[in-house]
Design a protein around this nucleic acid. Structure first.
Length: 246
DNA sequence: TGAACTTCAAGTTTCAGGGG
DNA sequence: CCCCTGAAACTTGAAGTTCA
């Protein structure tokens, strides 16, 4: 999808991009190798230069380049290209919005960090990622982490699944969407929400309730790994919706 | 050729919604 | 309980088209 994206070319919006597809210009190579459609020659040289720059950026796996040049609402187009370098993030907090658990996953592994424990490792994992994936993380997880850890560097390419699913017509929060898509929670965490996670932490912190602690970690684990399946589903649906309109 | 109209892209404002 | 952004609707402005 990324290679057939022209929205970052000067004077191209969704309308002209669709027209180009219709005329048979399907990716950056076509822009470089084919002559312009009649009446569009005034744009052609600039667009060819941008197509060249985009090919170089993709070859260098430069996710920042695309995040900075594409409108945020179309960042999802870069998902397949940076899937292997994605980091999935979900945090839990206490009632004062203080971080209690930082849950992270990369392509192969899930990590849970408690409070400030091993924070260097958190910095490293996030710093090395080329794409960040969250649910409502732009409004919640990222601002909270940035406030507490001021020099934590996030990838600019941040896929927040919340607005994407809303655009696809799914109402409600993460758990509601999972139910609609047939993604199941374990028996242990069934029916729990974010506020329950706050209470589980309190039970552990003040009453050393080991069971509550285990449940909290399971809850975070499921939140984080479900992001992986949701990301793929969102991409498929957005891609189909974009192509259908051509 | 120039005035009126059309077509897009891009900038601005407003408000509803999901996280712990 | 408290936290915050983004999409939609509307406006502006540049460039193109039509027609006398």
């Amino acid at each position: 999808m990324l290679k057939r994206t022209f929205l970052h070319f000067p004077n191209v919006g969704e309308r002209r991009e669709k027209l180009l597809w219709k005329y048979g210009y399907l990716d950056w190579e076509d822009i470089i190798n084919l002559p312009p459609p009649s009446g569009w020659s005034r744009f052609w040289l600039e667009w060819q230069k941008e197509a060249e720059r985009s090919l170089v950026a993709l070859d260098q796996k430069n996710s920042e380049y695309f995040a900075l040049s594409l409108p945020t609402s179309h960042w999802w187009r870069a998902i397949p290209e940076f899937l292997n370098e994605a980091v999935y993030l979900d945090i839990e907090t206490d009632e004062k919005m203080d971080v209690t658990v930082i849950g992270l996953a990369d392509r192969t592994t899930y990590y849970a960090f408690l409070e400030d424990e091993e924070i260097d490792k958190v910095y490293e994992i996030i710093f090395n990622a080329k794409m960040l994936v969250t649910y409502n993380g732009k409004n919640f997880d990222v601002p909270i982490l940035k406030k507490k850890f001021k020099d934590l560097k996030f990838p600019i390419l941040h896929i927040d699944l919340c607005p994407l699913f809303r655009r696809l017509g799914y109402k409600g929060g993460l758990k509601a969407i999972e139910t609609q898509l047939g993604i199941e929670r374990s028996h242990q965490t069934q029916g729990l929400n974010g506020w329950d996670a706050v209470k589980l932490w309190q039970k552990w912190k003040y009453f050393k309730d080991k069971q509550a602690f285990e449940t909290l970690l399971m809850y975070n684990y499921e939140d984080v790994v479900h992001l992986k399946s949701l990301l793929k589903i969102a991409y498929e649906k957005l891609w189909k919706a974009t192509i259908e309109l051509v």
